[in-house]
Amino acid sequence: MMSRRAKAAGGGLSLSRKRRRPRSDPAIPTINVVFLLLLFFILAGTVTAPQEAAIDPARTGDGPGGRLPRPLLTITTDAALGLDGQSISRDGLGAAVAELARQSDGKRPVIHVLAARDLPADTLVWALGEISAAGAATSLVVLKADRPGERTRP
């Protein structure tokens, strides 16, 4: 039994022409994964200055963790200070905090202190005192760990 098209073609066998679908680029799955990675880093991470990334803060064991807050005062183990990535001297800490307080439109700014875990406590207490004296509130930034003292890669 011949088909109508075969009959029209004079009795010969004709194969129906398959329409070619455009082939998708084989790199697209890779691009999707890279997009997801990009989204992850943008949403979960905080862009930090190299000086801030080098600090290994204290660990405590409770509560939910969040992103690295701003404004951020960093204190390294050798007591070098940095405010939002800019190095400042010990003498300039009060003036830098007072400047932030002036810019905050009458509200008391909160300075977040990220101190190295092996910084002598005296230096930390001195820095907290200087910030309070300059008119800002302070918070200590810690790293959340399951057990206090546990090494967590920052």
Binding site: E52, G63, P64, L68, H112, V141, V142, L143, K144
Partner: peptide
């Protein structure tokens, strides 16, 4: 970026 969970 740092993606560690920080607390205050």
């Amino acid at each position: 970026s740092r993606i560690a969970p920080f607390g205050l």
